[in-house]
Measured scan of single mutants.
Amino acid sequence: KYSDMIVAAIQAEKNRAGSSRQSIQKYIKSHYKVGENADSQIKLSIKRLVTTGVLKQTKGVGASGSFRLA
Rank of each mutant, 00 (worst) to 15 (best):
K26V: 08
G60A: 07
S19H: 05
L49R: 02
S40H: 12
A17H: 14
A38I: 14
R16F: 10
E36K: 15
R48S: 08
N15S: 10
A8P: 00
G53R: 04
A9N: 00
K14Y: 08
Y32I: 03
D39V: 08
Q11S: 08
V34P: 03
K29F: 08
I10V: 14
L69D: 03
G60M: 06
L55I: 10
K33H: 09
L69F: 05
K56D: 04
K43A: 15
R21Y: 15
I42T: 01
A9R: 04
S45L: 09
E13P: 03
I24W: 02
R16L: 12
Q11E: 09
S40L: 13
Q57K: 12
M5F: 04
E13Y: 07
A63K: 12
G18S: 04
Q11G: 06
A8N: 05
Q41N: 07
K1D: 13
K14T: 10
V61M: 11
R48E: 12
E36M: 09
S3I: 12
V7A: 12
F67I: 05
A8M: 06
I24T: 00
K59I: 08
K56A: 08
I10L: 08
K59H: 10
V61P: 13
A17W: 14
K14C: 15
K29V: 07
V7W: 03
Y27M: 01
I10M: 05
G35S: 07
Q57D: 04
M5S: 02
V50Y: 02
S45I: 12
I10K: 00
I28H: 01
T51W: 10
R16V: 12
K47A: 11
V54D: 15
Y32A: 01
I28Y: 00
K26W: 15
L44D: 11
K59V: 09
G18F: 04
K26L: 12
K56Y: 11
V50R: 01
R48C: 15
I28A: 00
K59Y: 10
L49G: 00
K43L: 15
D4M: 09
I6L: 03
K29T: 07
V7G: 02
Y27F: 07
R16T: 10
K56G: 03
S19I: 10
K43G: 10
A17I: 09
Q57A: 11
A70V: 08
G65Q: 13
L44W: 09
L44N: 08
H31A: 03
A38K: 04
T58S: 09
Y27P: 01
D4A: 10
I6G: 00
Q22C: 14
S40P: 05
V7F: 06
I6H: 02
S40R: 14
I46R: 00
F67W: 07
L44R: 15
K29E: 06
G60C: 10
A70C: 08
K14I: 05
I6A: 02
I24S: 00
N15P: 02
E36W: 08
K29W: 05
R48L: 13
R68W: 10
G65M: 14
A70K: 05
Q57R: 09
S23A: 10
Y27A: 00
S66V: 14
F67Q: 02
G60D: 05
Y2I: 09
E36N: 13
R68G: 05
K56S: 08
D4Q: 11
K14W: 06
S66E: 07
V34E: 03
E13F: 08
A17T: 09
Q57W: 15
S19T: 08
F67V: 04
K56T: 13
Y27E: 00
K56Q: 11
I42K: 00
V34T: 05
S64A: 09
N37D: 14
D4F: 14
Q57Y: 15
L69I: 08
K26Y: 07
Y27L: 03
L44S: 08
R16S: 14
K33G: 07
L44T: 08
S64F: 09
Y32K: 00
A70N: 09
G18D: 03
K56L: 15
Q22T: 10
I46S: 00
S40A: 14
G18N: 03
L69T: 03
G65T: 14
S30H: 09
A63I: 09
L69R: 02
K59Q: 08
K1L: 12
A8F: 05
G60W: 07
Q57V: 14
I28Q: 01
T58D: 08
H31I: 05
A63H: 11
A63M: 11
L55W: 01
Q11M: 14
G53D: 01
K59W: 10
S3K: 10
A63R: 10
V54G: 01
I42M: 01
K1M: 10
E13H: 08
M5R: 02
A12F: 06
R68K: 12
R21Q: 13
N15H: 08
L69N: 04
G62C: 08
S40K: 15
A70H: 06
S40F: 12
G35Q: 05
G65I: 15
A12S: 09
I6M: 00
K1H: 11
V50C: 15
S64M: 11
K47N: 09
R21I: 15
Q25K: 07
G62M: 06
Y32R: 01
Q22V: 09
L44Q: 09
K59A: 09
K1E: 09
K33C: 09
E36R: 14
K56V: 15
L49N: 01
A17Q: 13
V54Q: 04
G53K: 05
I6Q: 00
N15R: 07
F67G: 01
N37K: 08
S40C: 11
S45H: 14
S45M: 14
D39A: 09
G18P: 03
S45Y: 12
A12I: 03
S66C: 15
I46Y: 01
K33F: 07
I24L: 02
T58K: 06
M5A: 04
T52H: 08
F67C: 03
L69M: 07
I46W: 03
K14M: 07
D39S: 07
D39I: 08
A70E: 04
T51K: 15
K29A: 06
A70S: 08
V7K: 05
A9W: 02
